[in-house]
Nucleic acid binder design. Structure first.
Length: 916
RNA sequence: GCCCGGGUGGUGGAAUGGUAGACACGAUGGACUUAAAAUCCAUUGAGGGUAAAACUUCAUGCGAGUUCGACUCUCGCCUCGGGCACCA
């Protein structure tokens, strides 16, 4: 009701504006909901579909949605799914090679077809003995029986959506979707650019290939991890000294459910492959090899290089198993108060800063520079032969005189900072460590007179340890380390401990290191996607049969296009089978066929397509629903496409949107459609919650049946209420008492018909009328239907108050009402004696002369606070306004004898006295 | 953890940087009625103030900032909802 109600109002308005509007509807009726319902009720899905679509159609007609019923389609209709199957065959017959669509010959076994078969794990319910779709698996359990689902390898048809991944991201630039929807698409595709690196395994010919986005951290790699399913594990069996343990771990991992494995709260586990060493190709260092299930087999290469110093997961794992942590990236900062100057020489310096806490008072030692008027910790360079702690202690004593410092702690690694050293006229790059101390006692020695001259010693509160009070460029990093000392540094920074790459930024190093690897044949740039190819098989009855024949001799043989549609046989029993095969496999007279190629015995493919198939192209069919030659005529497509506005549920902004964009792009490559993208604009409505603020669902028992409401209050009341309930794109809760208000409005509106009079309208009414025309015209455009309804109510209230309205104004009012309450508006239209149809009338235009008010209300303010209002003409001068205020007893009293600094006057809006 | 949205009376919600709370629900009082429902009229953010007004203070999650003026813009937090999530 909500989605269609809003779309209907939008379309009605557009038609009155003179647009030709295609507002279609159809039934996407294949799939599990229908099949499950049919099984439950012991009936045929065909029957159930017919009955339900009839019911829905009646409901929609009652609501008065102005669909073009002549274009109604049904994805389960053979005349429709003939073309779904046809598209599948095109996927099978084509491939993307070097970014271009090419045709693949039937006997070509090498070119990667866009539709292909692969052995992949599916969700298997051991109790029902069937494969489940992802949608049927709820929290790792079978939706029907509650049994834990396991993974099972099964041959599946796949669509190579990954071949379109880049375009599915890039072309988002050309469409007008909500930013949120675009982001969802981009995240789902999950493009990530990085490097594949080969780690040779010592004493073998084998190598481990890893994918990383952080090639800059390669020198910090201290171990390599394979996913438990990685094929190398089996190949290394001979070398692995602790095979039993490894085997055990793998078995365990396999038995774990996705939910267990993917839960992040869980502590990471793994097993070291004893006797196996990998060689870091960049420095030939030998590192350990582990298997661990925190590495996913189906992303990247199924193996990672672990850099615990710069990756949280690796860090956690390394801590647990005591694996070395080697820091190779340090944070870098540019001193904003003292930035490096171009073309000056750069000098490197090693520094320490000391943070000294007095545990008795909880305060911290700080120096205030008299010259610069800023605050620092005791700090300075490291002298020859000193270590960090010695240097820090010396600086504290030299600068503050305190001598007894205890509990020293080096807080993390170095930080690189660039700044300009004015007194030396040079740029400096400092590498600074922060050392923490506690003060043992108050003992102080005399500091030098220069020091005394330069700094005051302060003891500061913890709250002053912040980036405004302290001047250090490194301060935010120190704070981060003080607040949570135990974590990896995962941001970009500058390289250290990385040989010739030292000093580069992470961004530079990623490129340089990958180039180096490439030159020695150990790596290259790659792009990875989270998006996987689309599992396109379902072992169910109620779907489009996949038009493929399996011949023992010829292998996979696609059905000839002229034999489409391959219709779904009507059968008595269609429940999922015990073997995990599609129920179609049991229908031997349908399954057993002759091979179209060699004439020998062959079998039909028995899997069917998922419920996403038919809905991936239905919008095309609406332009030409009866075409038996093509999926749609290209000229008709050119006329209508792209879809100007696609208004639908938010639940379809990832998968359905992505799938249909993918199919559309493929059809574009085939020359079947004229546009790159199917939908120019995509919006979605918020869901309506039940009266209990819970999502409406049968199991919660909070469903409102639109039929009941329409029966009691009429369809227009329901339509208007749903529009009035709240902002269109936000969720709102159904409130049964709220509907009364809308009902009252419509009844009063109906009665106001009696107020049509011969008298000319008042100025007030005309101004309101034209404001209403203007406001509603804008609100419909932005789908702000809640304010459309409230504006209609406001106007109706005014008509009541005035007690009279001219026929010509009432006519306009009806036109404004028509999009939201078409029945009522049409009825009154006829009653008022207009002989044409209201939908054929022209949408009213607001008359500017009523919008430009002759009288305006100016707010009189003192220091921005409104004290009252005056009425004047919109172009009144400041003096005129001042004069009116003087006439007004109250305002004059409030404003006279004030010490006014200035007056802010915006003509026709405000008159603000700013006091001294 | 990351990415989006939200946070305004008792409730749903309005407000191009310019009178915060439109419109509606609910509530209270009144009219009509034997009575109730329906309908109509009035009041309705909180506090202070008054016989009643006038008037006044505080209010758009919290804290800063920009501005003559901030629900609206900026920064930092809190919190609720949604999406993604061991994606290297």
């Amino acid at each position: 009701c909500m989605g269609y109600g809003a779309s209907d109002a939008y379309c009605r308005r557009k038609r009155m504006q003179g647009f030709e509007v295609l507002f279609p509807v159809g039934w996407d009726a294949f799939g599990l909901p229908t099949e499950n319902y049919a099984i439950k009720t012991g009936r045929k899905p065909q029957e159930v579909t017919k009955e339900n679509t009839n019911n829905f159609r009646n409901q929609m007609k009652k609501m008065g949605f102005s669909f073009d019923w002549s274009r109604e389609i049904n994805t389960t209709d053979p005349d429709y799914y003939k073309w779904t199957q046809w598209i599948f065959l095109q996927f099978y017959r084509h491939a993307i090679v070097d970014g271009k669509l090419v045709e693949v010959a039937d006997d070509d076994k090498n070119t990667p077809r866009l539709a292909y078969q692969a052995e992949i794990p599916i969700n298997w319910c051991p109790s029902c003995k069937i494969g489940l779709a992802n949608e049927e698996v709820i929290a790792d359990k079978c939706e029907r029986c509650g049994t834990e689902v396991v993974k099972r390898l099964q041959k599946q048809w796949m669509l190579r959506i990954t071949a379109y991944a880049d375009r599915l991201i890039k072309d988002l630039d050309t469409v007008d979707y909500l930013e949120k929807i675009k982001t969802q698409q981009i995240n789902w595709i999950g493009k990530s650019e990085g490097t594949n690196i080969a780690f040779p395994i010592s004493d073998t010919e084998l190598q481990i290939e890893v994918f990383t986005t952080r090639a800059d951290t390669l020198f910090g790699c201290t171990y390599v991890v394979l996913s438990p399913e990685h094929s190398l594990v089996e190949e290394l069996k001979e070398k692995i000294e602790n095979w039993n343990e490894v085997q055990n771990y793998i078995d365990n991992a396999r038995n774990k459910s996705d939910l267990e494995r993917e839960s992040i709260e869980k502590e990471k586990t793994g097993v070291k492959l004893e006797g196996v060493k990998a060689i870091n190709p960049i420095n030939n260092e030998k590192v350990d090899v582990w298997i661990a299930d925190y590495v996913l087999s189906n992303y990247g290469t199924g193996a990672v290089m672990a850099v615990p110093a710069h990756d949280e997961r690796d860090f956690e794992f390394a801590k647990k198993y005591n694996i070395p942590i080697k820091e190779v990236i340090i944070p870098e900062r540019i001193d904003k108060r003292n930035p490096p100057v171009a073309r000056k020489e750069k000098f490197e310096r090693k520094n320490v800063q000391a943070i000294v806490k007095d545990t008795k008072t909880g305060k911290f030692l700080c120096l205030h520079s008299k010259k610069h008027n800023w605050n620092t910790f005791p700090m300075g360079g490291i002298n020859d032969g000193e270590d960090l702690i010695q240097a820090a202690k010396r600086e504290v004593t030299e600068e503050t005189g305190y001598v007894n410092l205890i509990n020293e702690k080096i807080l993390g690694g170095q930080v690189r900072a660039e700044y300009f050293a004015k007194h030396k006229d040079q740029n400096r790059i400092s590498f600074t460590n922060l050392i923490c101390f506690e003060l043992a006692d108050d003992k102080q020695i005399e500091v030098s007179s220069e020091e005394k001259e330069e700094n005051n010693i302060l003891w500061i509160d913890k709250k002053d340890l912040n980036t405004t009070f302290m001047v250090h460029a490194e301060m935010d990093i120190w704070l981060d380390r003080l607040n949570n000392p135990n974590h990896a540094f995962t941001n970009y920074g500058a390289l250290i401990n990385s040989q010739e790459f030292d000093g580069l930024t992470s961004e530079q190093a990623k490129v340089k290191i990958t180039e180096k690897l490439k030159s020695i044949g150990a790596g290259d740039f790659v792009v990875n996607y989270k998006l996987r190819d689309w599992v396109f098989s379902r072992q169910h009855y109620w779907g489009e049969p996949i038009p493929i024949i399996h011949c023992e001799k010829c292998g996979i043989v696609p059905l000839d296009e002229k034999d489409l549609p391959l219709t779904l046989p009507e059968v008595e029993r269609y429940e999922p089978t015990n073997t995990g095969e599609s129920p179609l496999a049991k229908i031997l007279e349908w399954v057993n066929v002759k091979c179209p190629k060699c004439g020998g015995d062959a079998k039909r493919e028995t899997d069917t397509m998922p419920n996403w198939a038919g809905s991936s192209w239905y919008f095309l069919r609406y332009t030409d629903p009866k075409n038996s030659e093509q999926l749609a005529n290209i000229d008709k497509l050119k006329y209508w496409l792209p879809i100007d506005l696609y208004n639908g549920g938010a639940e379809h902004t990832t998968l359905h949107l992505l799938y249909s964009r993918f199919w559309h792009k493929f059809l574009y490559d085939l020359g079947q459609v004229p546009t790159l993208e199917p939908y120019q604009k995509r919006i979605s409505h918020g869901i309506i919650l039940g009266p209990d603020h819970q999502k409406m669902s049968k199991s919660r028992g909070n469903v409102i049946n639109p039929d009941d409401i329409a029966e009691k209050f009429g369809a227009d009341t329901l339509r208007a209420y749903i529009m009035f309930i709240g902002p269109y794109d936000q969720e709102s809760a159904w409130n049964t008492t709220g509907i009364q208000g809308v009902y009252r409005f419509l009844v009063r509106l109906w009665n106001n018909f009696e107020k049509i009079s011969e008298k000319p309208d008042s100025e007030t009414l005309l101004i309101k009328l034209h404001q209403t025309i203007d406001g509603i015209s804008q609100d419909i455009e932005t789908f702000s239907f809640n304010t459309v309804v409230s504006k209609l109510m406001e106007f109706n209230n005014l008509v009541e108050k005035e007690g009279a309205i001219s026929k010509s104004s009432f006519k306009i009012f009806l036109q404004l009402l028509f999009p939201v309450t078409p029945h009522l508006a049409s009825e009154l239209w006829q009653k008022a004696g207009f002989t044409d149809l209201i939908e054929d009338s022209n949408w009213p235009k607001a008359d500017q002369k009523y919008l430009e008010n002759k009288k305006v209300v100016v707010a009189v303010q003192i220091n921005g606070k409104t004290k009252g209002v005056i009425e004047t003409n919109p172009n009144a001068s400041q003096e005129e306004v001042a004069e009116i205020i003087k006439q007004d007893e109250r305002l004059n009293k409030a404003t006279e004898n004030q010490k006014v600094k200035k007056i802010v006057y915006l003509s026709g809006k405000i008159y603000n006295l700013v006091l001294e």
